[in-house]
Design a protein around this nucleic acid. Structure first.
Lengths: 350, 350
DNA sequence: ACACTCGTGTTAATCGATTAACACGAGGGA
DNA sequence: TCCCTCGTGTTAATCGATTAACACGAGTGT
């Protein structure tokens, strides 16, 4: 009753070799039913819960779990509808294969740190016992991505990568669609609200575009191209991908001397904040100021938000299959994305 | 460049013992800076990503991760606002301690199976490399709970347990409050809509109450007590905790010969469906039929739902601290819950 | 000069399993 | 009878680390 029983102690108690006990649990057909059942009976009697998870992972080099890692803090992630849809798709396939899903936290601010500090802040990335990982939104050179790569852990990403596998949409073309849509409505002065990794703060800077998320850069570039060379595009951000950031960023853009006629947000979550800001100034979205989003999360439709629809759940599902389904060998899947026009966009005023 | 480097190969390449390499990564102060840096340099050169996670977990008997297990399928869980709030609180503390969070899937239907089938369907529970686990809503005798207990994994539950730790609310007293509130409004015929583990279906049975979730039983008992001995209470369910189930169950209750004057739901999610059903019949909640929920999720307020408020995030936080914070030794924490009256309840008609 | 601590590195046991290779007896075909 | 196959169980190497105990040389106080 003292120590936790092990394979060895069960073997001893049952009068067989450890191999036999192992087979009893993992390869029923290798043993005669008589012996096998005797072993299981003894195991049950001793309260042996089956082979130890860590030991098994070490020996077989398989964990039965995959990791997930986001650009946002975990405690925030659960309020991001994009993340939720993605996770829901992903868990559909992990559930089917009885695979665990390890949510890996890491310090979001791992720039300008020494080797030790980075190691430390990536603790969970190093300790995660996983067979593969899904990294959504992380840039190629993100410490967590590098760490997983060093561990030779199969990685599926959500943005184009040189090597490695990914499930993407054509963010740039989607951006172009937004741009063309706005241009066709006569908008020549557009503010683009983007999420920014570093300061989850309140300030509203114009942005160092190299530091943006990969998808942001592409969408931004696309919007510019779609609007054409004669439009003015300013880029603002108030931190992470949250409604509040969208509100703050848009409030600043709309509060300046010459207000843009349209605000294009990097995501629907940001766009929701933009809509708030527009209304707070007594303006009406789609008439006084046009607003666009990205993703088409569930809340977009009731909000009347013009946006880019992408199949988020499918993305999750596919990322999961890439890791878990051996028959699924594609290195790169491109998902369709389409413009959905609603009431938040309209002809430019004047 | 062929094989993944190990502690051993790094030691060999650096001309030191494996112990030294281990210390270099785990106990910097055990080594002189010279040697340590030499080791790290060699490690980097070989592309050694640091000590292997599985091996380390085996040797140290610590995983740096905790598990979570729900009464609902994972892919559904991400649309349940209660679950999201709980997870958000939980991840607040796991993030702070750089602890991974393992979402453990399991077959929801593990009744009436042989030892082998149960083992198989609990695969992920057995394979999870974790130091502790949070089980929200699961009954004492749930196979997953038993499996975790057999593994001697510290468990924190959300319902009262004989032994073991838990973070609870007084579900029964909360139920009483609902009952008293309805009784005071003159309601003597109440339908209680509850979530039911087994059939995630469309049928609307009267229920075998022993099979209900522990919290459902308590809430139900409380409602009965609060209503007093002269009220009629019927119990209906249409499967899992989802808006759709609430709608179906309520539609059936309201479609019968003598309709109840109030419908008390087991959760706000169900209550949302009840509200749908009420409106679908052309009735007005709070006037024609009173409706109550449980939990006070974010959507409850805009819906005008009378409900029991409980601090869900706090629950997540506390469950996390129970597992992760050594200074937190309480075996049992009771969280406050209070009735929040909104427009969905009113005097009984006639 | 002696006995000490202290800092630094090594030796070697150990965590709990998996599985290739082998051994051995029974049955089967020629 | 001999040889082979097949089914069933065992032997023993291995997965990749951690850490208590020890060894050794350099300071240090008296």
């Amino acid at each position: 009753m003292s120590e936790q029983p092990t394979l060895k102690s069960v073997a001893a108690a049952a009068g067989v070799s450890t191999a036999a006990v192992s087979y009893a649990f993992n390869r029923p057909d290798r043993l005669s039913t008589r012996v096998r059942e005797h072993i299981l009976a003894v195991a049950r009697e001793l309260g042996y819960p089956g082979p130890d998870a860590a030991a098994r992972s070490l020996r077989t080099r398989r964990a039965g779990a995959i990791g997930v890692i986001f650009t946002v803090g975990l405690s925030y992630a659960f309020s991001d509808p994009y993340v939720l849809a993605m996770l829901s798709g992903l868990t559909e396939v992990t559930e089917r294969t009885r695979t665990g899903l390890v949510l890996i936290p890491f310090d979001l601010t791992t720039t300008g740190l020494g080797e030790d500090e980075v190691r430390h802040s990536l603790d969970a990335v190093h300790r995660a016992v996983i067979d593969g990982a899904v990294a959504d939104g992380l840039p190629d050179d993100h410490p967590a991505v590098l760490a997983l790569a060093a561990r030779k852990i199969p990685l599926v990403r959500s943005s184009e990568t040189a090597s490695g596998r990914c499930v993407v949409i054509d963010d740039r073309e989607a951006g172009r669609e937004i741009g063309r849509h706005l241009a066709a409505l006569g908008h020549r002065d557009v503010a683009m609200v983007v999420a920014y990794p570093e300061p989850p703060g309140v300030a509203v800077p114009v942005v160092d575009e190299a530091a943006l998320y990969p998808y942001s850069r592409l969408r931004l570039a696309g919007v510019r191209e779609g609007l054409g060379p004669h439009a003015r595009v300013r880029v603002v951000s108030a931190g992470r991908n949250a409604q509040e950031s969208g509100r703050v960023a848009a409030a600043s853009a709309l509060g300046g001397p010459d207000v843009p006629s349209a605000v294009a947000a990097d995501s629907d979550v940001l766009a929701a904040g933009v809509l708030d800001a527009v209304r707070l100034r007594g303006l009406e979205p789609g008439r006084d100021v046009s607003v666009t989003g990205f993703d088409d999360v569930p809340a977009a439709e009731p909000a009347g938000l013009t946006t880019i629809r992408q199949p988020i759940r499918d993305r999750g599902r596919l990322m999961g299959r890439m890791l878990l389904d051996p028959g699924f060998t594609a290195r790169r899947v491109v998902l369709p994305a389409e413009l959905v026009v609603r009431s938040s966009t309209g002809p430019a005023p004047r």
